[in-house]
């Protein structure tokens, strides 16, 4: 028994050594990528140590003193963290319940358009916002929704007496975030669902038609069940980003008067960076990464349980 065990482990070692020698070219191919991954992905993970230290620029990461969980304690008992956490979750949740179903509905409606020219045209236009940065979009939206902008002009024409200050009122600003987020994501989001719908076997639809099912029933009983796995996958990925309230969007639309509702984890971390509060900033960032990781795994597990391992992504 023992002999065989020894023999096999020896064999594995020898064969993997031969493998390295034989396939050195392939290993060389990996090298540039590996170096980049180590330098820019794994070294920063090591830099998380800063969260457990009292970081001083002069002393560097290794020279600064260990403080254990003091930074986290400071974070949870501080005034600002509850506010940014609440803002992040509220904005993210509101975006999820609006921007997650929107592309599903749009894809179902697009699928019912039989005039291929109109369909193609609407699709092409709706993908456009996906290709521009939030600096450009934010800039366009600040013009559109300004006091003198066309949105307020239209509201005035419709008989509204006072113009709406979208960038001063907290409620309207959140509304603006939700609407512009749908605008940017809805068209692009349909692609994955339209691909799933196009995979439906036509004979299923024909059989349903012969059995007397109307179009509406076909959608309910054939199309929606077919896209369900895609829907859950997208939902899991979205839930993993629950603490991503959309830094790019908010950073390019908000102003200090809106911090009360619009200051989120990422904007806060960026401010800590510019104010040299590295330790607190890292602690908050680490909190965000860990929660995100937990959310992906937990949602995946729940979906797997509920669907007997048929859905889920891992």
């Amino acid at each position: 028994m023992i002999m065989t065990k020894k023999y096999t482990s020896y064999k594995i070692k020898k064969s993997s050594f031969i493998g390295i020698k034989k396939h050195w070219q392939l290993l060389l191919f990996l090298l540039p990528g590996l170096i980049a991954l180590i330098l820019f992905n794994y070294l920063p993970m090591g830099g998380i140590l800063v969260a457990f230290k009292d970081y001083r620029i002069r002393d560097g990461i290794f020279g600064s003193d260990w403080v254990g969980f003091a930074n986290f304690q400071k974070m949870f008992t501080g005034m600002e963290f509850p506010r940014i956490l609440k803002n992040t979750i509220v904005i993210s949740f509101l975006k999820l319940i609006t921007s997650f179903p929107a592309p599903i509905i749009l894809a179902l409606l697009l699928n019912e358009i039989h005039n291929s020219k109109i369909k193609k045209c609407v699709q092409t236009i709706s993908y456009l916002p996906h290709f521009f940065s939030w600096i450009i979009l934010g800039n366009i939206f600040t013009m559109l929704f300004s006091i003198e902008g066309p949105v307020n002009s239209v509201l005035k024409m419709l008989g509204l007496n006072e113009s709406i200050a979208f960038f001063k009122s907290e409620g309207w600003f959140i509304f603006l975030l939700i609407v512009t987020n749908i605008y940017q994501t809805v068209g692009w989001g349909t692609i994955i669902y339209l691909a799933a719908i196009s995979g439906i076997d036509n004979s299923l639809i024909e059989a349903a038609t012969i059995d007397g099912a109307g179009r509406f029933k076909q959608v309910i009983h054939i199309i929606i069940p077919t896209i369900m796995p895609t829907v859950t996958t997208v939902l899991i990925l979205n839930l993993g980003g629950i603490l991503n309230a959309g830094f790019d969007q908010i950073y390019n639309l908000y102003n200090p008067t809106l911090y009360n509702v619009a200051d989120i984890i990422d904007t806060y971390v960026l401010r800590q960076l510019s104010e040299n509060n590295y330790s607190i900033g890292t602690a908050v960032g680490l909190f965000k990464s860990v929660v995100g990781l937990i959310f992906v795994f937990a949602t995946n597990k729940i979906v797997n349980k509920l669907s007997d391992d048929e859905m889920g992504i891992m």
Partner: peptide, 22 residues
């Protein structure tokens, strides 16, 4: 191993400030 090293970066990252320090 090489595939997992890569895929793990999709799930977790060091965050803004540690990356800045690196």
């Amino acid at each position: 191993i090489f595939s997992n090293i890569l895929i793990f970066t999709m799930l977790f990252n060091g965050g803004t400030i540690p990356t800045y320090l690196v």
